[in-house]
Write a protein that binds this DNA or RNA. Sequence first.
DNA 1: TGATATCGTTGCACTCTACAACCCTCCTGG
DNA 2: CCAGGAGGGTTGTAGAGTGCAACGATATCA
Lengths: 153, 153
Amino acid sequence: MASAASPTRPAESATSLETIQRELTAFARRARATAARMHPELSLVAYTILAHLEEQQGCRATDLAAHYLLDKSTVSRQVAALERDGFLERRTDPTDHRVQVLHLAPRGVRSLAAARVRRQETFKERLAAWDPADLARFADYLVRYNADAAAHP
Amino acid sequence: MASAASPTRPAESATSLETIQRELTAFARRARATAARMHPELSLVAYTILAHLEEQQGCRATDLAAHYLLDKSTVSRQVAALERDGFLERRTDPTDHRVQVLHLAPRGVRSLAAARVRRQETFKERLAAWDPADLARFADYLVRYNADAAAHP
DNA sequence: TGATATCGTTGCACTCTACAACCCTCCTGG
DNA sequence: CCAGGAGGGTTGTAGAGTGCAACGATATCA
């Protein structure tokens, strides 16, 4: 399972599909526990929300829900907990008082940075033996797969 | 994000790592809901357990826990529910009365087959536009990644 | 035979999640 | 102008999934 490219006779497509299914679900099962080990302070969802906030320079709870296919009530509770613990802050949009724009609070910035370092270390160690070209291709495949998954729900 | 391979200057490895992290966690968040949509009768964990049982021709609950990094109590409850609903059966090992070997029951075989068909259809549609060579490479990468993840916990 | 290890179950607590009902604010058509 | 609908967000409720700790039963070994 080490080498990158395999022969690709048409008959093998079905096998690839099975493998992709099995390996993706295997990963999914472990993701939560892995996240908990890497950064106990931030759950997988919390980390995701904070990272999104940093990347987007702030956004609304509804955006988070839409982007991550979560119910708005779920996001609401997550955000409430993150605000209570000082990871983020809400700023009511002055032009539309229905809207609360979420921004990272100082503690959120710090925790996110620390968590990112831990994640980087783990992934770096984990993927140390990979050729950079393979890493890049793998990343591309994942992006493409998630895009396809979003398009075919 | 459509084309497969990207340029791979060394400086891009860090970006690839970030992308891989982000896309894998994005997938993980959606996996449970996706499974529920594809086969409402079997949760993601239930499907996984039954598939493992089929593949291994029966195994112990402890094996499942070790393989999927779950607490034995979690597996115990999952197995109890699956037995209650007729998806699997337990057979006490005659040579070691502590051990219960789990096997698929007829209903488990049927449900697993149906779920597999639904999953195949979904994935086939989802990945229809992919070149078989890309599929094969993607599958290889996933296998390799999960192996590395298991080796560096 | 007694100490130790293994397999599994159960009590407990917690997180994550969706759905439904609700409130508040905004917008638009009569 | 204002009534009704739409959008953003919260809360009540319920259920799945999970881990930890304590326990009982069985097996193994000194």
